[in-house]
Design a protein around this nucleic acid. Structure first.
Lengths: 255, 255
DNA sequence: GCGGAATGTCCACTGAGTGGACAGGGAGGG
DNA sequence: CCCTCCCTGTCCACTCAGTGGACATTCCGC
């Protein structure tokens, strides 16, 4: 029962395409650096993508860009129904109102994973956060909101798991416990700058259904433009309404 | 200035992944048949996708399915602003109202291309139409609506181009001209069954902006459940409203 | 229990893929 | 004007990654 050997060229190609998507547009050198793949190989991978119509080379600046056809690589993925049917429309309305993007995340292992985002329609797309990207629980507003919504013992266990691998896990767990306590008192997760994302700030709320915490919803702004208090003042109320709407629809069984 | 040689393994992997997305879930054999790639190779390609986390094997039926991570292969693609910001939300509202999916298409060469679809949120997803898929002008309701909205000479030229390759192009062009005339009189494109999609019916309207025809919007239903007259009676009015809303927003400069 | 079809694995062969090396070009600066 | 630095794109000889025909195994329906 040995497993077949994977195809390296394919794995590398996927890595390159993902790196390209992360940047939105890139040169061969940038992709080589991002992926660690030698530049001549990147050229051949890009040539493949060009010939198949997945990417195009911008005539103006010579950068490679994804084309519509890349959608065909992902459109077969069926998200959980509640996310696309209930949460996504509400999120779009929220972003159209606030002009800042928002991200919906659910727990996967010891990370949050972005399930849906409005960066596509947000006037200013900030940190190009893609669906599928992993977000650490302890450094994100959504993670804090999520943990704060959990029963205390479950939160403690999850913090333990999330800090298990770290060098000074015990200390990190203590700090995390305090941060979660703050979030619980406030009623929302909050972040302004920080090591992970120095340029943005964010508020987040948990999404609950039938006593379970399904995930977290966060609004993100640029820290240069919007201060922490400012962000909360502007975004928290609309965010609260959006989460309430989602939860009501879930309760009505629309998910 | 010779071009680099493409990477076959990558091209094949992409073909396999696309085939998998088209089916939603598939076995190795199905993918081998769809793509023409030998089965052992499909296994290795799938193994690659498994190891990288792009697909999972369903424990119940042993089929391969795309996972959330595939989104990372396409999320960097930025659609034209009016589609994601204006048309997509309106389309979602339409599908929530009618319960049938709708597709937005624009012209590319002598085909329409699906730019946005609501099959993801439609209660019954019919013909798994993906973004990026090519739709023939002359066999689709959206194509007829599009051609009918064009000035007569442009329509004729486009019909000529679209039928140029065909065996009996002249005859096909004549038939197409008549079908377009009917659509023009009716004010909408219409299809029920037909060789290409025997199981569905569809009504479509053109989307106009500043004197240009941007594309077509169609609602699709299952022919078994909804008859032609029935479909028009139920869907045409909401579709008209949706298109009007999109056009008004475009006129207000929201795109 | 017997054909028929699908699944999964093996392995010898080879050309597809690799990546170090280099040529060409543009920007900066001394 | 020359020299340096860095980036782009291409070349090509080597080799091992990828291939696919073949087979063993399982799961059907009859």
């Amino acid at each position: 029962m040995r497993q077949p050997k994977p195809v390296r060229g394919f794995a590398r190609g996927l890595a390159a395409l993902e790196a390209l998507n992360r940047r939105g547009a890139a040169t061969a050198l940038e992709l080589a650096r991002d992926t660690g793949i030698p530049r001549p190989t990147i050229y051949r991978l890009l040539q493949t993508l060009l010939e198949e119509g997945y990417v195009a080379r911008s005539p103006s600046d010579d950068r490679f860009k994804p084309r519509l056809k890349v959608r065909g690589l992902s459109d077969g993925f069926e998200d959980e129904q509640w996310i696309s049917a209930v949460a996504a429309p509400a999120m779009q309305a929220l972003t159209r109102r606030l002009h800042w993007p928002c991200d919906l995340m659910t727990l996967e292992g010891t990370h949050l994973v972005i399930r849906e985002t409005t960066h596509r329609i947000a006037p200013y797309s900030i940190d190009r956060n893609m669906a599928g990207r992993e977000i650490p629980l302890l450094e994100s507003s959504a993670g804090l909101a999520y943990l704060a919504a959990l029963p205390e013992d479950e939160a403690r266990e999850l913090i333990g798991l999330a800090t298990a691998g770290l060098a000074d896990g015990a200390r990190a767990a203590l700090a995390a416990g305090r941060a979660v306590a703050v979030a619980r008192r406030r009623g929302h997760g909050l972040r302004q700058g920080g090591a992970r994302w120095p340029h943005t700030g964010s508020v987040a709320l948990p999404i609950r259904h039938q006593g379970r915490v399904l995930g977290g919803l966060s609004v993100i702004w640029m820290a240069r433009v919007v201060g922490q208090e400012d962000g909360v003042a502007r975004c928290l109320e609309p965010l609260t309404q959006t989460v309430r709407e989602i939860e009501e629809r879930l309760a009505r069984g629309e998910g």
